[in-house]
Structures are given as structure tokens and as C-alpha cells.
Design a binder for these strands. Structure first.
Lengths: 233, 233
DNA sequence: TCACATTTGTCCGTATGTATC
DNA sequence: AGATACATACGGACAAATGTG
């Protein structure tokens, strides 16, 4: 009797461009290729890997979409190693959530769960540097409001700074991701000026509670910030 | 005086394959193309879009990496629309976390935050269907253990089932994602048999606390499940 | 401003491997 | 086993973009 489902994962390095992709990817992941480094042009890569230019191009497409490289055309251009690959992952997760028809409310609940934990850690671990950065962020938002400009970017940055104050880098990336998703899901209409002013106000209050280590109050304010204010728009 | 940083994002749809990618992507996102649907072969697509095969191929590479399609070779093959694109996003987020040199402990803390919220919701919202699924999951794990097989997959499924019981689909996807990341970061050595048995035991206790709606006890058990058990390996 | 070199973007033709009928 | 249909891969060619002299 034959087994229907093998427990082995088939070795499928059939496709040459995947092999090329994996080799370059590993060089980046292990640090041999660092951000800013330039890879040889397509033709030269083809010679070195001993494959056609088309194969190289498909490998570069994947590396580009994955966020590992950017590609400059023209004289002196070519593939350049990039550093931040979080953005691309976020875009794909956003697609996944859109396809699954997830509502903004559901994402907000998840975001709140994450940021509650962040705030809990941040209250304990925030140092002077973090406090200074948060204070500057609030100041920047105030100045923008005074100039009748939207402090929406500063508002997102506030949450990132909180995550950094938690001293947990996983929180930083996940808060970035989930905030970008939240933003992407409601991108049809940007929040009006009154709403973003309310955000800025809420952030100030959260900050005050943070430096006074008033944990419960800070959490309560965060809930208001994430769940209530956004509802109106 | 010139502004140094423009507020405009450059319109760069110069590349034809990106245009092709976006068109097909939109047809999938808006539901015109459904999972299982077959796209025309490369040559035919080239004719319809009025572009060369190479251009089509690069668009297909991106769609494939994004998880929108799979490609079958041979007679009657070609691009086929896929449904689950979460897996690909997870892989990329995993890469991002690896590149940022995030530790398992940091990810575990984030995972715990998310799953605490999940458990809180699940205790309130779980219906008979959820309870039945969880019970079957625990039974399956027990059977595997009796056969001296590792119930590790069932263990991950337990957490997914909890997320489903929360009735929040964002939680489902995010728990899937963060658990896969957790798994990916410690993939060097799979947990030993004693450890997975401890997981299964912890899951049983969490389930008991869940159906009795003993919230604090359930949360405490979850903390043990996520933070302590894994530490040994 | 004007060539010129370099590099990506795109197309075409062709050959090979693979899966189905 | 042979024919068919498809992806994979190679090589050559030209256009477009970009920086250099």
C-alpha cells in the first residue's frame, strides 16, 4: 500500500530563479551584503551565476518585492541592498486582511490589546531619552495644530515611540505593522481636523499619566484614544 | 528656495509589469477572479495585455510571491487564483524580525499580549461550536501522545481555535501570524516530546478554565503556556 | 547643450522540461 | 508511447532612463 500523503517536503529547487533568489537573500540575511551595497548589474550577475538575464531578473523581482533590494535604472544604477523590509510585509498583511473582509473595529480591538501591553511595559521601562522623544513629539503635534496643519503623522509616531519605550523590538515592529494596517483600512477619507486634534489631546493625557506612572489611568486613556475617537469618522 | 523633501509621492508606474500586476491583483481583490479560477497561459495573457511574455512572467512572479496565485506547469496548467495569502505575509514579517535580530523572548511577550486579549474575548463569546472544536483538538492531541507522536501541530491549532472563539477575525490572522513567527524563530530544533506534552497539559487546563469562565485562572495558565514551558528548549 | 557609456525595461525567437491526454 | 500544451530558460536586440565628460 502506498501512503497518500508523504511526510516529506518535496525538494523543489526546480526553478533556477528561486535558487538565485535564495543565494542572494542569504548573503543579505547573514550580513555579507549590507544595506547600501550595490550588486553587479543583471548581465554580470548572469555571468557569475551562469544563468540567463531573464532568470536574474525574476530573482531580482522577488528580492525587490520582499523589500531586500531597490533597483535603480540608468548609468551607475542596478540593485542596491535595502534595510527596512517591514513595509513590504505590512502591505501584504494589509492585503490579507482586506481579502478576509476584516472590519476596522476588529483591527482596532487587536491594536488595543497590543498597545495596552506596550503601555504597561513602557510605564516601567521608559528612560529619560524616551520621555524626551515623547515630549518632542507632542510639541511637534502642537506646533502643527497651531499652523492649522494635520498632526496625523506625529500621532502615529507617538505610538511608535511608546513601543520603543517598552524596550521590546517585537512590539515596535508589530505596532508599526498594525498601525499601518489600521491606517490602510480607513484610507478612504483622512480624519478631519477636529478628530486629529482630539488624538493629540489624548496623547498628551496619556503622556502625563505615563510619567506619573498612573497605570490604570493611562490604560483608560489609551482605550479612549484607540476605540472611541476614531468612531466618528 | 526649494523644498528639500517633497510631500508628493512620485508616480512611478513606468514599469509595464507593475501595471499588469496591479490589474490582475485588483480583479482578485474585487472578487471578479475567485480562488480556483484559471488565468490564461502566459502567451495568451501577453496577447490580451499587448505585452511580451517576459513582462507577463515578471507580473506573475510578483503575484505568486504575494500569494495571489500559484502556477502549475505542464498540460492544462497555468496561473491559478489562490485564497490564503496570509502565509506569504507571515514569511516576510518573519524575515523582517530576523533581520532586526529580535529575540524569541520579545516575540513571546508580544504573543502573550495578543493572546491574553483573545482569551478574554473567547471566554465571553465562545459558543457550543467553539467548545466542540476545542474539545476535539485536545482529544486529537491526546491520541497523538498515546501513539508517541508529537502533537505540536495540534498545539498551534489550539491557539487558532481560541482566536476563532473570540469572534474577531483580525485576532485569527494576527495569532496565526505571530505564532508562525514564534515557530519560525525557534525552528532550529523542534521541541522535545516532554515539552509538547507539557503544552498539551497546559491547553487542557486552559480549556477547563475557559468553560468555567474562570478568567484570571485561564490568563495565568496562558502565561505559563507561552512564557515558561518554551524556555527549557 | 550635446554626445556617450552604462544599466534597466521590453520584445522576440527558440529550445527544453514537464504534466496531461 | 506519442502528441499536446504549458512553464522554464537562453540569447539577441532595441528602447528608455540616468549619469559622465
Amino acid at each position: 500500500m502506498r501512503v497518500k500523503k508523504t511526510i516529506f517536503t518535496p525538494v523543489r529547487s526546480k526553478r533556477t530563479f528561486e535558487d538565485v533568489y535564495l543565494q542572494i537573500r542569504q548573503l543579505i540575511m547573514q550580513g555579507t551584503l549590507k544595506p547600501g551595497d550595490r550588486l553587479p548589474p543583471e548581465a554580470e550577475l548572469g555571468k557569475q551565476f551562469n544563468v540567463g538575464r531573464q532568470t536574474i531578473r525574476e530573482a531580482l523581482r522577488i528580492l525587490e518585492l520582499s523589500g531586500f533590494i531597490v533597483i535603480q535604472i540608468g548609468y551607475g544604477g542596478g540593485p542596491i541592498v535595502k534595510d527596512n523590509i517591514v513595509g513590504k510585509a505590512t502591505e501584504m498583511l494589509l492585503d490579507a486582511l482586506k481579502l478576509a473582509k476584516i472590519s476596522i473595529e476588529e483591527v482596532a480591538a487587536a491594536r488595543l490589546a497590543m498597545e495596552k501591553a506596550v503601555l504597561n511595559e513602557a510605564i516601567e521601562r521608559a528612560d529619560e531619552e524616551d520621555i524626551k522623544n515623547l515630549r518632542e513629539n507632542l510639541l511637534k503635534a502642537k506646533e502643527l495644530i497651531a499652523k492649522k496643519q494635520s498632526p496625523i503623522d506625529a500621532g502615529f509616531e507617538f505610538h511608535i515611540l511608546l513601543a520603543k519605550a517598552s524596550k521590546n523590538n517585537a512590539f515596535v515592529i508589530l505596532v508599526e505593522t498594525i498601525n499601518a494596517i489600521n491606517r490602510g483600512l480607513r484610507n478612504r477619507k483622512p480624519p478631519d481636523f477636529r478628530t486629529v486634534k482630539a488624538y493629540a489631546q489624548a496623547h498628551e493625557e496619556i503622556f502625563e499619566a505615563l510619567i506619573r506612572k498612573e497605570r490604570d489611568k493611562a490604560i483608560r486613556l489609551l482605550e479612549k484614544d484607540i476605540l472611541e475617537i476614531g468612531k466618528s469618522n
